[in-house]
Nucleic acid binder design. Structure first.
Length: 590
RNA sequence: AGCCCCGUAGUUUAAUGGAUAGAAUAGAAGUUUCCUAAACUUUAGAUAAAGGUUCGAUUCCUUUCGGGGCUACCA
């Protein structure tokens, strides 16, 4: 039992003994640092059932609690807040039990159930950009956090490898490609395909304006432009399994996957398996048919199939086009069902997708429920805000995007420039140096993005390079390295339990350390790496004030010196582990 | 038009309905042979507006204002 629940149960007993009243719970929170004490009971809520003054109640409670349990040594009352001081022994004991645990904070899985986390899920005709970076970092980090909180996790992505948009780049490549390949042009595969997607759009716009000049309405022109009609024809051919179209489709997809794989590698994210819409949309169609027979869906005159969600406060939603081809929703229904078929032990899924799709997922989860899948209650949309540039929204078709590969490279370059300016790292060889630049540059970018609440939009100014000082990744990485440097100065940190006096800074540090497991559980519940980032920065700050309060290595008492080294070591474990949850690496030497 | 999300110092941000709204960065002033200065110390600066619920509101409710998104036979 942890100290909070101990306090809680004593407080409840106390109220029962003193006032003969049964209280379900009392509110306990950590005492704010500017007051004396460790845990605080807020007595205001109790006054509703106990007719007395806040002061009197708090004092009586305090006396009772301190008398009942010797882990609580004293108390003070400040206007309705009962602050309880927890004994040094308690914290020392706690610390001694975790000080050697390098996996401190992490919980081993206790069930065989799996949580599937989907993230990344790019279109195969656009290279990855800054928005995808946020997606990837969030998805990967949430996977790490869920794992650390004791769940089995499968990382996956759904690859949008079919649909009209794919046909667009294919049509353009056939028309303008002259047989170009990534090999022949030395262009990364995803970039090459992206180029043709842009070319399609250019040509499409050109044709529209020509048609409008010829007197067509804009609406008609958009529908009848030859190149679009060609793409639509290609989609029909593709769904019919036309050999030539399928062959081209496969070739171009392979180019893209190769390019993506390279970006994922640099970004440090990975996947346990992949789903392809081309392989799940048929299953989706099957369930549309089934739902139709069960009256979950209905057919309109033109043959299109819809789901009526008006009773749930939503609109009607199309699930199959009038020409019988699948829409986005069809595929997602199929994919979800396929996943549960493949992994019967999955009991929840997390979809990492931007908040412009909030409505889509609301509808998807609802439709799955209507189709009778009980697990639809455990589906979670990890929705996140867009990444904006100072110039506004990123639009890949208009070329106003920050390319993922370029940005990652830029971060490394910035890290290099700063390092060179500071003249560190001079005793490393080129290879080691580049590794360090890479880890620091990525640390800056990852932390910058992950420390923000996923719901909020991020304004990213590429010109103002990401900070390296203050509440940043590199600052934390640096703190870790500094601890390593201290630990390296001595042969061995004793494992003997320390039983002497504990200074305030030391106690604060232990308190902060002990909060790590709670932070992980909270972050796992709300799927928010930001919480870990905030915890981590607090830990580093508390460590810094501990570190600056008195020299560690020059402490004259040997046992106290060892104690402070033990503390430093435990903190370094926690920092390393927390960075790990954010997907941020550390350098061993700097 | 309807629905959803967001609004906190110049900027990036924190705060299960709890105490004097916490940081970082940029700004101002200072610290230099230090367990690594990518540091430290000091200083100034914020809850968009108005109501309501509450002992107590950045947090919950209502309205207004601002920013974004969705409501596609696009994905």
């Amino acid at each position: 039992m942890n100290i909070e629940s101990t306090l809680k149960s004593i407080a409840i007993t106390a109220i029962n003994d003193l006032y003969k009243i049964n209280i379900a719970t009392v509110e306990i929170q950590p005492t704010r640092s500017d007051f004396e004490g460790d845990l605080t009971i807020v007595v205001f809520p109790l006054l509703k059932s106990i007719k007395t003054s806040p002061m009197e109640l708090a004092n009586k409670l305090g006396e009772y609690i301190v008398g009942a349990e010797n882990s609580f040594t004293s108390f003070n009352v400040v206007s309705g807040f009962l602050n309880i001081v927890v004994s040094d022994e308690y914290y020392l004991n706690q610390f001694n039990s975790i000080k050697e645990k390098s996996d401190f904070g992490f919980v081993k899985p206790t069930t065989s159930d799996y949580t599937m986390v989907e993230y990344s899920s790019p279109n195969t005709n656009k290279p990855l950009h800054l928005g995808h970076i946020r997606n990837n970092l969030l998805g990967f980090s949430v996977s790490q956090i869920l794992k650390a909180s004791g769940r089995n996790v499968l990382k996956t992505q759904i690859i949008n490898d079919r649909g009209i948009h794919i046909c667009k780049s294919m049509v353009a490549w056939v028309k303008f490609g002259n047989g170009e390949t990534p090999e022949s042009t030395s262009v990364k595969g995803d970039k090459l395909v992206g180029k043709y997607y842009v070319l399609f759009d250019k040509e499409y716009k050109k044709q529209i304006s020509l048609l409008v000049e010829d007197g067509n309405s804009e609406e008609d022109a958009k529908k009848n432009a030859a190149i679009l009609v060609e793409a639509q024809k290609m989609l029909l051919k593709w769904e019919a399994g036309d050999d030539e179209v399928v062959k081209l489709w496969k070739t171009m997809n392979e180019w893209v996957y190769k390019g993506f794989a390279q970006t994922y590698k640099t970004l440090g994210v990975d996947f346990d398996n992949y789903y392809y819409e081309s392989e799940t949309y048929l299953l989706g169609k099957e369930f549309i048919k089934q739902g139709l027979s069960e009256n979950v869906f209905f057919k309109k005159e033109d043959g299109s199939v819809w789901c009526d969600l008006t009773e749930d406060g939503l609109d009607e939603k199309i699930v199959l086009r009038s020409d019988g081809t699948a829409v986005y929703m069809t595929q997602d229904i199929g994919t979800a069902i396929q996943r549960v078929k493949d992994y019967p032990t999955i009991n929840s899924m997390v979809y990492t997708v931007g908040n412009e799709q909030d409505y889509h997922f609301k509808v998807l989860f609802l439709i799955l429920k209507k189709l009778g899948f009980g697990w639809s209650n455990n589906l979670h949309h990890l929705s996140y805000g867009m990444v904006d540039l100072p110039s506004g929204k990123m639009k890949s078709r208009e070329g106003t995007v920050v390319d993922a590969d370029d940005l990652l490279e830029e971060m490394t370059t910035t890290a290099r420039d700063i390092s060179l300016e500071l003249g560190k790292l001079e005793d490393l060889n080129e290879d080691e140096k580049n590794k360090v630049y890479n880890v620091i540059g990525q640390g800056a970018l990852k932390y910058f993005i992950l420390k923000v609440d996923p719901k909020k939009r991020i304004l990213f100014d590429p010109k103002e390079s990401v900070d390296f000082q203050g509440n940043t990744g590199p600052f934390i990485q640096y703190s870790y390295v500094r601890i390593q440097a201290i630990l390296r100065k001595i042969d061995k940190v004793s494992v003997e339990d320390y039983n002497g006096k504990v200074e305030a800074v030391e106690k604060d540090l232990i308190k902060q350390l002990l909060m790590f497991p709670t932070a992980i559980q909270k972050a796992a519940n709300i799927h928010s790496p930001a919480l870990i980032a905030n915890y981590l920065y607090d830990l580093v700050k508390v460590f810094n004030s501990f570190y600056h309060s008195s020299p560690i290595l020059k402490t004259s008492f040997e046992d106290r010196k060892m104690f402070r080294l033990q503390l430093s070591k435990a903190v370094s474990f926690a920092i390393k582990n927390a960075l790990d949850l954010l997907g941020i690496g550390v350098v061993q030497k700097m």
